[in-house]
């Protein structure tokens, strides 16, 4: 029973991180219909920047804030420079562009910071809460992770549902041409969408870095699982991404605990295949068509 509780708690905290990565992918898919394969590399860069700031200033909070800010900037730059030219091109062009960007960023990170993974500080203690005589597999840092992801998910929901910027962004995502006819500067909305997504990814990077270490390729597995979570949630639904992330976190935690951690990647792909077979539009998607 303790094991089940442990695995559940652990699933929730890792699920929160998958949810953040899935949110980043979903925000970009919604606004530009591009699956951003460079997401993992982008959040790797911002986490390296956070690491440099934390090491030189000694302040975790400052590092966290800088990671989010650099995510916003990096996302906006990528949209303006790399995405804009392929926006109206065939979808395959965008796929190749994000793959190319991935390669480029990984190489650049290796040149600057080296290829040996390094440790990354956690915000809070990594020692599990003590209940009676046992230590739970859930730490103060996990609490922090879950709360931060919940806060960001709520903030995004408020942004999209409750503000006029959110309304413009949704209009630009659903019907770009009609949005332009209503005076919405669609290009600007896409830039904002990419910036928000990259900031969301940057947050996931800082949260997960203490457990995966920080190197140019450290975040690739997280990205794959985040992608599965996004597809599970329907690829264009932010609430779906969060639920998909948590469900997947729990499922993989049970697989890892009861069957062995070697099976985790396999389980993730099996879940992906099953979802695509039974409900190809994902569990929460409103739309029917899908490409790529």
């Amino acid at each position: 029973m303790t094991k089940f509780i442990d695995l559940t708690l652990n699933g929730i905290s890792t699920g929160a991180i998958y949810a953040a990565v899935a949110l980043a992918l979903v925000l970009i898919w919604r606004s530009t219909r591009i699956v951003n394969f460079a997401q993992g590399a982008m959040l790797m860069i911002t986490t390296f920047i956070a690491s440099a700031v934390i090491n030189s200033s000694g302040s975790y909070v400052l590092g966290f804030v800088v990671a989010l800010a650099s995510g916003l900037v990096l996302g906006a730059i990528v949209e303006r420079v790399a995405v804009r030219p392929v926006e109206n091109a065939p979808p395959l062009n965008a796929v190749i562009m994000t793959l190319g960007l991935y390669t480029l960023l990984v190489a650049v990170a290796g040149m600057i910071w080296g290829n040996t993974p390094r440790s990354f500080p956690a915000a809070f203690s990594l020692r599990g809460y003590r209940v009676g005589a046992t230590n739970l597999l859930f730490t103060p840092n996990d609490t922090f992770t879950v709360l931060v992801v919940i806060a960001v998910a709520v903030a995004l929901a408020v942004l999209f549902r409750g503000t006029s910027l959110g309304l413009r962004m949704r209009a630009a995502a659903f019907a770009p041409e009609v949005a332009r006819l209503l005076g919405v500067r669609v290009g600007r909305m896409l830039t904002v969408g990419w910036a928000l997504a990259a900031a969301c990814g940057a947050m996931a990077g800082v949260l997960v870095a203490p457990s995966v270490f920080l190197g140019p390729n450290s975040f690739d597995p997280i990205l794959i699982i985040g992608f599965v979570a996004a597809v599970l949630g329907g690829l264009d639904s932010p609430p779906g991404a969060v639920i998909g992330g948590v469900v997947l976190g729990l499922a993989l935690s049970y697989v890892s605990g009861y069957e062995g951690s070697a099976l985790v990647p396999l389980a993730a792909l099996v879940i992906l295949v099953i979802v695509l077979m039974i409900r190809p539009t994902g569990l929460f998607s409103a739309t029917k068509e899908r490409r790529v």
Partner: peptide, 10 residues
């Protein structure tokens, strides 16, 4: 626009 262009998701 022709076909009215209401955004059905909103």
């Amino acid at each position: 626009p022709e076909g009215r262009g209401v955004i059905t998701e909103l």
